[in-house]
Amino acid sequence: RYGQPRDKTIQLSKALSWLLRHAVEEQGLTFQPGGYVYVSDVLKHPSFQSYTLDDVHKCVETNEKKRFGLKTDEQGQEMIRAHQGHSIDAHVDLREITDPHEFPTVVHGTYLRHWPNIGQGGLSKMNRTHIHFAPGMPRDSGVISGMRSSAQVFITIDMEKAMNDGYKFYVSTNNVILCPGNSQGYLPSEYFKSTIDKNGKLV
């Protein structure tokens, strides 16, 4: 059927995102150092028994947002991880940002319906381990992931001010900027530089 291979890859990507970001231990699998899980264990899981190792390779290689990474252990066994987006502590090796000027533009994308709450209370990590940001606007050079392509509102963050006040920022392998927020998981709106809609108008 036309489109079936692509559909299969998309379905696998969604299933891997669910498992690796949110459900590894709940589903009886074990994290290895760096947030990796053995591919052989993934393929034994009931949700993945219709997929092959080649399917996993294709999914990782063709994923536009570079959500996943593969590596091989000393015994030659392949492992896979999600680079970011976790709601569970996967111990992914993120790099802490120490110089705010490394990323002159830090943007969070959201939707108009969420803006009133965000404008008042700040950004929340919700059920994830970090608040997600992109190092620029969609389609800017170097922006692979960090916000949904359907985002309607773009909040630019004053990362230097936030870092000076003790907030920690990290960058993932696929260039997503991550912040755990304060003790309640929030980055307050006092660190917002500007907020625009997709037409460039101030919100």
Rank of each mutant, 00 (worst) to 15 (best):
L178E: 07
N175K: 11
Q152F: 00
I157H: 07
K161N: 10
K125N: 14
V106F: 06
H108P: 10
H132Y: 15
E61S: 14
S124K: 06
S87E: 11
D158Q: 01
P138Y: 01
E74H: 09
R81N: 12
E78T: 12
V171R: 12
V171A: 10
G136P: 04
F103A: 08
D140T: 02
M126A: 14
K125Q: 13
Q84C: 15
H86M: 11
L123C: 06
D89L: 14
T62C: 01
G166M: 06
N174Y: 02
N174C: 03
S172N: 06
L112F: 10
S150F: 00
V107R: 00
K161Q: 15
I144A: 09
E64T: 10
M137G: 02
P138G: 00
V171S: 10
V107Y: 03
F133G: 03
T98F: 12
Q77A: 12
N63T: 12
L94G: 01
Q77M: 12
M79D: 03
P104H: 03
H83R: 07
V143D: 05
T72V: 15
K71M: 13
E96W: 05
A90D: 04
K125V: 12
K168W: 07
E74P: 05
R95N: 11
V176W: 04
A90E: 01
A162V: 07
A151W: 05
H130A: 09
L70G: 05
S87V: 06
M137S: 00
H108K: 05
E78W: 13
F154N: 00
G85C: 04
F103Q: 06
H130C: 14
R67D: 15
M137N: 04
G121D: 07
K66M: 06
M126H: 14
T105K: 13
I131N: 00
D99G: 04
S145G: 11
A82D: 08
S124F: 07
I131S: 00
F169N: 10
M147Q: 04
K65Q: 14
T129W: 08
G119V: 01
Q77C: 10
H101G: 10
V107M: 01
E96I: 13
T62H: 07
M147N: 00
L112N: 11
A90W: 04
F154P: 03
M79A: 15
G121I: 02
E78G: 00
G119H: 11
G122R: 01
I131R: 05
G142V: 07
